[in-house]
Simulated assay, not measured.
Amino acid sequence: MLLWKPPAAWFSINAFFTRSPCGAHRLRNWYVNFEHPEIRTEVGFDTFDLAVDLVIAPDLTRWRWKDEDEYAHVRRLGIVTDAQHQAVDAARAQVLAMLEERQGPFADAVTWTVWRWNLAWPPPRLPQPGPAR
């Protein structure tokens, strides 16, 4: 998975890769996760998933909403407030515009379809917590 998270955005865009039967890697799909903007902490990042997602074909020609029923349920429960719902609606429109206009990671979609993790790169590590204040 390759994740693209703009600062202060109410979504992240993920590229999910899979291995074909012959062992070649390929882009399985794009996946937009709608979530609270991230908050940097001493040990990493905090966010909150908002249930609704957008699944996009690797070639960007088709897309479908996922879990809209769950999103409606968390809205009814008050887990997603009216103000948050407005932010999600704006984020949905922003992502669809990016997709239609081929902006953000969609601008270089062909390049991303062949992206590979460099095996020489060290595994990512979160920083260790600092001393208590």
Score class of each variant (00 low, 15 high):
56 I>N: 03
37 P>R: 05
72 A>F: 06
96 L>P: 04
82 D>I: 10
84 Q>W: 07
40 R>E: 14
66 K>R: 04
95 V>L: 02
38 E>Y: 06
73 H>Y: 10
72 A>S: 01
110 V>W: 12
54 L>Q: 01
51 A>P: 01
74 V>K: 00
90 A>C: 06
61 T>D: 14
49 D>Q: 02
99 L>K: 02
95 V>H: 04
99 L>V: 04
76 R>E: 15
109 A>P: 09
99 L>F: 02
76 R>K: 14
64 R>G: 13
94 Q>P: 02
64 R>S: 13
79 I>L: 08
103 Q>T: 10
67 D>S: 11
87 A>P: 04
56 I>Y: 00
102 R>P: 10
44 G>V: 05
37 P>M: 02
82 D>N: 15
105 P>R: 06
53 D>E: 04
70 E>V: 07
89 D>R: 11
72 A>P: 04
58 P>Q: 00
63 W>S: 05
48 F>L: 11
77 L>C: 14
66 K>F: 04
81 T>Q: 13
45 F>P: 13
102 R>W: 07
41 T>S: 06
79 I>V: 05
55 V>N: 07
44 G>I: 04
92 R>I: 03
67 D>I: 08
58 P>K: 03
51 A>Y: 02
67 D>R: 10
53 D>A: 04
111 T>R: 15
85 H>F: 04
91 A>T: 03
78 G>N: 08
77 L>V: 11
74 V>A: 00
90 A>T: 04
79 I>H: 06
53 D>K: 00
39 I>M: 09
89 D>G: 08
71 Y>M: 11
99 L>Y: 03
87 A>D: 11
108 D>E: 15
98 M>S: 14
74 V>H: 01
74 V>L: 00
98 M>W: 15
62 R>T: 03
107 A>C: 06
45 F>L: 15
64 R>T: 14
90 A>S: 08
44 G>Y: 04
45 F>S: 14
66 K>H: 06
91 A>E: 04
108 D>Q: 15
51 A>W: 05
83 A>Y: 06
88 V>M: 01
101 E>Y: 10
58 P>Y: 01
104 G>K: 07
82 D>T: 12
